[in-house]
Amino acid sequence: MTFLSSVFGGPWCIAVYTYREGIRRKLLIGFLILSLFVIFGSSFISSFLDPSAETDIDLKLIKDICVTAIAIFGALITVYISASVVPAEMETKVIYTVLSKPVRRVQYLLGKFLGIQLIILVNLLLMGGLFFIALYMRQGIMPTLLLWSIFLTYFEFLIISAFTFAVSCAATSPLVPTLGGLFIYITANLTEYLKDVEHRAGQTGQFFDNLIGKIASALYSILPNLQNFSIKMQIVNGQPNDPPTDVLIPWLVLYSLVYALAGFACAYLVFRRKEV
């Protein structure tokens, strides 16, 4: 117990402090309000549809718009907060005060990372909660499949946040890691293209093409593929008890945790010798 409290006590205090500080950021609140507006506004989408046709199309429209809004605004919040937490402390020189205390760098990073996750989770819960209420009011039954969709969305954000955090540990201002985070989000969604590169590269038989094909193949195996999480869009409108979906969800959670660990390890290796 003493061991645990000595290892995690400090990081937890830093996490809570990071959360308190982060949740007050104006840009973050702006993103959150915007996303809540979109989720709330989606309820009026039915005004564009034929009122004589009594269908569930408006419900489907609301679901898709809300899941997309959560995915986009959530990703922006994730990238922004993951990219800015450490560089902002460097800019304000708070980091010197913290690291002069009996806190190791790994504990500091762990605390910051946990704080980021708390912010992401709270934002996701706010957006998801409003979406949940909007759906419940419209269809009158608990939209349980939505919870699975939001659950998977968090694990997608976990990967983005871990790698953006790693980039931010190498930077001194939040701008570069923010751009880096967006780049990570976009490229991780396009990992599937590497497979295409691999197929096309092998067609000429030339050494250089073969080499590119092999590199593409290696990257395809190593890099995280966020398209795996596309089932979050499928779940929300799908049928319950779909065997492939049921099997995929636990694997996706594990996948996300493993890449989050890799991202955190990268962050530490970058940060350990950083002069602060």
């Binding site: 996706l252 530490y268 290796l269």
Partner: peptide, 26 residues
């Protein structure tokens, strides 16, 4: 930490393969 990084990347490769298998099967 370097070991953790290598381990998680290795596990990531395995999981990538597993997820690919599951998505192909799906």
């Amino acid at each position: 930490m370097a070991g953790v990084l290598l381990f998680s990347l290795g596990a990531g490769v395995l999981l990538n393969n597993q997820l690919r298998h599951l998505r192909e099967s799906e």
